[in-house]
Amino acid sequence: MSKQRKSIFIITMLYTLLILYFLFFAFGRVGAAERTAGYTFIFLPDSFFKLPNISDLLHPTLMDLVGFGNIIAFIPYGILIQLLYRATFLRFITTFFFSIIVMETIQALSFLGSFDVNDAIQNTLGAAVGFGAYKLGARSKNNWRNFWITAISAMVLFLGVWGLCGIVDKAFTKEEGPFVAINELMDSSGNSSTGKNLNSFEISAQKVKPRYNMYGVAGGDLETFTYSCKEKVFFSLYYGIPEPTDYSGSIRVSVDGREVLTSSGEIQRSDPELFPAVFEIPVEAGSELKITIKGDEKIWDVGYTEMKYFWN
């Protein structure tokens, strides 16, 4: 083994020891292992493309740095391994990926981390960037020229991967759409009840002006309204008892028979700072919502938002 190759081998081993330290001992992993009761395995790739954007870097968090580190820290392997062993891209990337899978498995089995295929993919992306940078840089007999071309190529390829990940994240991440008011609910008699009476009122000394609709009952009666969701939505409504009030009223909301909200005038009396209150819940397609109102309780701005891809 030549002197230069020995030096590269030593650098690779020392760098690997540094990486192993971060994989198994950094970030309080040893202490966390003592409190871990079970193995964590994440086999479904779903977030390997979620890298921090430029605005995140203005106030970076630890997870932002980890997201970048999962790629950047493994770029040197794409360069160092080729300086030691010649291999095709397919052979190199396959061997590297399965090596990372082994490390992730040991992390999980030793309770020093979790098996996360998303991390493995990010690490492999980093190695692929290094491999490409080396191929672009190793075209001259001048070592310093090769070094600078490789370094610049690594930066350019990383920026390309970062941008591509941003495009993929944007394309396959749903965003909250506009609010859609529900202006008709089915009452207990099977008739359609229209939200009306949009006059302003006060709750806990706050002036409330419904924007879209308002539902309620009069004279201490009880009424159940029903709404069937045709698709997955985030359902929301505001509720409270307008002033002046003797706090005689209540509200219950259930989804497919499972109660998800209950409140009463007594709760409003004891914690007036919580009102007017807002209630939000994700509801699956095909579910049935039932809203039961009693007494002077009012609900308003009843509606939903959908999670949509930007192209919808």
Results as ranks from 00 to 15, higher is better:
His59Ile: 14
Pro60Glu: 07
Thr61Arg: 12
Leu62Cys: 10
Met63Gln: 15
Asp64His: 15
Asp64Trp: 06
Leu65Ile: 11
Leu65Lys: 09
Val66Tyr: 11
Val66Gln: 09
Val66Phe: 09
Gly67Ser: 08
Gly67Glu: 01
Gly69Lys: 00
Gly69His: 05
Gly69Glu: 02
Gly69Ala: 09
Gly69Met: 07
Asn70Asp: 14
Ile72Gln: 00
Ile72Cys: 04
Ile72Met: 10
Phe74Cys: 06
Ile75Ala: 03
Leu80Phe: 11
Leu83Phe: 11
Leu83Ile: 08
Arg86Thr: 13
Arg86Leu: 10
Ala87Pro: 04
Thr88Ser: 15
Thr88Met: 09
Thr88Pro: 07
Phe89Val: 11
Arg91Phe: 13
Arg91Glu: 14
Arg91Ala: 13
Phe92Glu: 03
Phe92Ala: 02
Phe92Gly: 01
Ile93Glu: 01
Thr94Leu: 15
Phe96Met: 07
Phe96Asp: 01
Phe97Tyr: 04
Phe97Asp: 01
Ser99Asp: 02
Ile101Trp: 03
Ile101Pro: 00
Glu104Arg: 05
Ile106Thr: 04
Gln107Ala: 05
Gln107Cys: 02
Ala108Val: 04
Ala108Gly: 12
Leu109Ala: 10
Leu109Trp: 09
Leu109Asp: 08
Phe111Ile: 08
Phe111Tyr: 15
Phe111Gln: 03
Phe111Arg: 10
Gly113Thr: 01
Gly113Val: 02
Ser114Pro: 08
Phe115Thr: 01
Asp116Phe: 01
Val117Gln: 05
Val117His: 03
Asn118Lys: 07
Ala120Met: 05
Ala120Asn: 01
Ala120Gly: 11
Ile121His: 04
Asn123Trp: 04
Asn123Lys: 11
Thr124Glu: 01
Thr124Tyr: 00
Leu125Arg: 02
Ala128Met: 06
Ala128Pro: 03
Val129Gln: 00
Gly130Phe: 03
Gly130Glu: 05
Gly130Pro: 05
Gly130Leu: 04
Phe131Leu: 07
Ala133Gly: 04
Tyr134Val: 09
Lys135Met: 15
Lys135Pro: 03
Leu136Gly: 01
Leu136Arg: 09
Leu136Thr: 05
Leu136Asp: 06
Leu136Ser: 08
Ala138Ile: 02
Arg139Phe: 12
Arg139Met: 12
Ser140Gln: 03
Lys141Asn: 14
Trp144Met: 10
Trp144Val: 08
Arg145Met: 14
Asn146Tyr: 07
Asn146Ile: 02
Ile149Gly: 00
Ile149Tyr: 03
Ile149Ala: 01
Thr150Phe: 07
Ala151Tyr: 05
Ile152Asp: 06
Ile152Ala: 13
Ser153Arg: 04
Met155Thr: 15
Met155Leu: 14
Met155Lys: 10
Val156Ser: 11
Phe158Asp: 04
Leu159Glu: 10
Leu159Arg: 08
Gly160Thr: 07
Val161Tyr: 00
Val161Leu: 13
Leu164Gly: 14
Leu164Ile: 12
Leu164Pro: 02
Gly166Ala: 05
Val168Gly: 07
Val168His: 03
Lys170Phe: 15
Lys170Gly: 09
Phe172Asn: 08
Lys174Gly: 13
Lys174Asn: 09
Gly177Ser: 13
Pro178Tyr: 12
Ala181Lys: 04
Ile182Ala: 00
Glu184Asp: 12
Met186Arg: 13
Asp187Thr: 11
Ser188Trp: 01
Ser189Ala: 15
Ser189Thr: 13
Gly190Ser: 08
Ser192Tyr: 11
Thr194Trp: 09
Gly195Ile: 04
Lys196Gly: 12
Lys196Leu: 12
Asn197Lys: 08
